[in-house]
């Protein structure tokens, strides 16, 4: 399988936080979600991949051939947007259009106008020119997305694109992800971080779970759903089932949690119901286990 990005031993040291060492391959032609709690290192990793933050050590190979993110040819192939204040707050949509057109070789003005309309934003060339600082958080994110999607790129790297969007806009974003990937099937890829796992599940093919600056699990969603199971049971059987479970929550009458699929046979003996977990349930299970391990 081709990899859009291959990360080898990447680290970043801050005074109070260390990212890595991270090694991973991100498959080409798919949509990859970076999932993790706040402070897990998702934004730092994205910023390093896009050349916004410098790494301390390690190497990243893009599109199986390029390693220097400072190279303009590589920057043109990657569409990046951050979660907050991506564009200067004092600029208008028209100024965003001008900056994008000048800043990148592959920005399409007409597509930007169409995307603005689709996201129910004002027309960039219209007479009313509001500054981004007057936009709601949701509309700011719509602007960032319209701008980055108006470029003809091969890889989108988006930091929490869904966090400030309403459910309807999130749905439009999912449609746009599908359109982006299908326009050039197998050639384009998306990497995005998210906390809105349930809403973004149907556009996620591959997931990378992060905790405390490290990757704790990764894989295609279908493979992960075969590796892990969702377990339900009555509270009276909880103590027996507990040693076989990765993470759990419960009340006086019942419990629920994630376990490895290889323990399914054993868990069934304790009168439990086994189900296929959703990505949301899987994420909570994996991240909770990482949190518990860190506390120990």
């Amino acid at each position: 399988m081709n990899h859009v990005i291959e990360i080898k031993g990447l680290t970043k040291n801050y005074k109070d936080f260390t990212l890595g060492e991270i090694s991973a391959e991100i498959p080409c032609g798919f949509s990859t979600a970076l999932i993790g709690a706040n402070g897990a290192g998702k934004t730092t990793l994205i910023d390093i991949l896009c050349g916004v933050t410098a790494k301390s050590t390690g190497e990243t190979i893009y599109f199986e051939e390029m390693t220097d993110i400072g190279e303009s040819r590589l920057r043109n192939r990657i569409g990046y947007c951050s979660s907050m204040n991506f564009f200067p707050a004092d600029c208008t949509l028209k100024e965003v259009e001008i900056s994008m057109e000048l800043g990148f070789d592959n920005f399409d003005k007409e597509k930007f106008s169409k995307l603005c309309q689709r996201f129910k934003l004002e027309v960039p060339t219209g007479k009313k020119r509001k500054k981004l600082s007057k936009f709601s958080d949701g509309n700011k994110m719509r602007t960032y997305l319209a701008a980055v999607l108006a470029r003809d790129t091969e890889l989108l790297v988006l930091d929490e694109p869904a966090s400030s969007l309403d459910p309807l806009a999130r749905d439009i974003l999912c449609d746009m992800f599908r359109e982006y990937l299908s326009e050039r099937d197998g050639e384009r890829s998306i990497i995005f971080s998210t906390h809105n796992i349930a809403d973004m599940e149907n556009v996620t093919d591959y997931a990378i779970f992060m905790a405390n600056g490290k990757i704790i699990e990764r894989g295609f969603i279908e493979e992960l759903k075969q590796k892990y199971i969702l377990v339900h049971g009555d509270a009276e059987n909880f103590q027996k089932a507990k040693p076989f479970m990765m993470s759990f929550s419960g009340n006086r009458t019942s419990f629920e949690g994630i376990a490895l699929a290889e323990h399914a046979g054993m868990l069934k003996r304790f009168d439990t119901a086994i189900e296929l977990p959703t990505l949301q349930q899987l994420s909570i299970g994996i991240l909770r286990k990482a949190e518990n391990n860190a506390e120990v």
Partner: peptide, 19 residues
């Protein structure tokens, strides 16, 4: 600066620091 509004956009544009 990176933390200022637009800081991350400017770091991502073609040319990087030379721009």
């Amino acid at each position: 600066e990176k933390e200022d509004s637009g800081g991350k956009f400017f770091r991502s544009v073609t040319g990087g620091f030379s721009t």
